[in-house]
């Protein structure tokens, strides 16, 4: 099996199909636009500016977790512990703040916790060469349990202004409600997209995901790249915890029990390949928006949530099938 890392597009004539293939976020973006158009036509409440703001706000937590998940999936890994780590961090942050610690210190310590756990994941995966699925499955179980032990099964409400900052301070931007959380998510997407596209680190991430052996032969430290990806993802999970407290100011050990699967759903809907090496963070944010759009639009169309889940699940399978098909065609 020979492998060649794709070079920059040549001057070859490109058509629309190739454009979509090369830019994985285009397909999801089209799907999102079509969904919005359909709901705009079938309900008279969906297309209100308030509601569009709401949909974005509803996709922030899972969207942010999914950004970290995207990085890991790009390396052909997977992180089942992502949401449970974030939940643990919400508890740590809220608990420390309730205990009288300044909000920003609690926030930073929460992010330290998520980074440390994610780094441990990365270390186990790179040094003992355990499969990411197994390591993070174990960590998922551990983090969930530790969260319950830490909180004694109780939820911890927080009123700390720093921890709630992402949602409470809102400003109007041409009549549109924008929370700081949305702005932060946008900055994160742009920053990560830049890092992935323009820096050596980003190119290494894609290369490791495409073929670790080839990456190693071309002089990339696979271990260091993988470890860095898990740590960055850990920091992102900490920020996701912050977003979660902004949205529901109540840290709950039972929250986001299937957040890991939700995050993977967003990543897959966003056009990132589960086989690694191909995808984008922008696509992931769009994937998270697609889920929230379906939920919101279908609710406003008066459809019960079990049907909403059927719709989301169908989309996931379609998205992966497309990825599979396009890969087969390429080879």
């Amino acid at each position: 099996m020979t492998t060649s890392v794709e070079t920059a597009p040549s001057a070859r004539k490109t058509n629309l199909g190739e454009f979509i293939l090369r830019t994985p976020a285009v397909g999801p973006a089209l799907a999102l636009l079509v969904a919005i158009a359909v709901f705009a036509m079938t309900t008279d409440t969906f297309l209100e500016l308030d509601n569009l703001s709401l949909v974005v706000a509803q996709s922030l937590v899972i969207g942010t977790i999914a950004l970290g998940q995207t990085l890991i999936i790009l390396t052909a890994g997977i992180d089942l512990s992502c949401a449970s780590i974030a939940v643990l961090a919400t508890l740590v942050m809220a608990d420390l703040a309730v205990g009288g610690m300044p909000g920003w210190v609690a926030l930073l310590l929460g992010i330290v916790v998520t980074s440390a756990i994610a780094a441990l994941n990365g270390a186990l995966i790179t040094s003992i060469r355990l499969p990411p699925f197994i390591v993070t499955l174990g960590m998922f179980t551990i983090a969930t349990a530790v969260a319950r032990i830490y909180s004694d099964g109780q939820s911890i409400p927080t009123t700390d202004s720093v921890l709630r900052w992402l949602s409470t301070r809102r400003y109007l931007f041409g009549g549109i409600e924008v929370t700081y959380g949305m702005t932060l998510a946008l900055i994160m997407v742009l920053g990560l997209a830049y890092a992935l596209a323009k820096t050596a680190w980003g190119k290494h991430v894609y290369a490791v995901g495409n073929d670790p052996e080839a990456a190693r032969l071309s002089g990339i430290s696979v271990r260091r790249t993988l470890l860095s990806v898990y740590i960055v993802a850990g920091v992102i999970y900490g920020i996701a915890a912050w977003q979660a407290l902004g949205r529901v100011p109540n840290a709950d050990p039972n929250a986001f029990q299937i957040g890991n699967l939700d995050a993977i759903t967003a990543v897959v809907l966003g056009g990132t390949s589960l086989f690694g090496g191909r995808g984008s963070v922008l696509g992931t944010m769009i994937g998270a928006l697609i889920v929230a759009t379906l939920r919101s639009g279908l609710t406003q169309a008066g459809i019960d949530d079990l049907y909403q889940d059927v719709a989301t699940g169908t989309l996931v399978i379609v998205a992966v099938a497309l990825d599979r098909l396009s890969r087969r065609k390429q080879s």
């Binding site: 020979t2 058509n15 629309l16 190739e18 293939l21 690694g276």
Partner: peptide, 18 residues
């Protein structure tokens, strides 16, 4: 894990169709 630069226009079209 493989991906080659060569893509037939016909195959991309069918992907778009899919």
């Amino acid at each position: 894990g493989q991906c080659g630069p060569a893509r037939g226009a016909g195959s991309t079209r069918s992907v778009v169709r899919a």
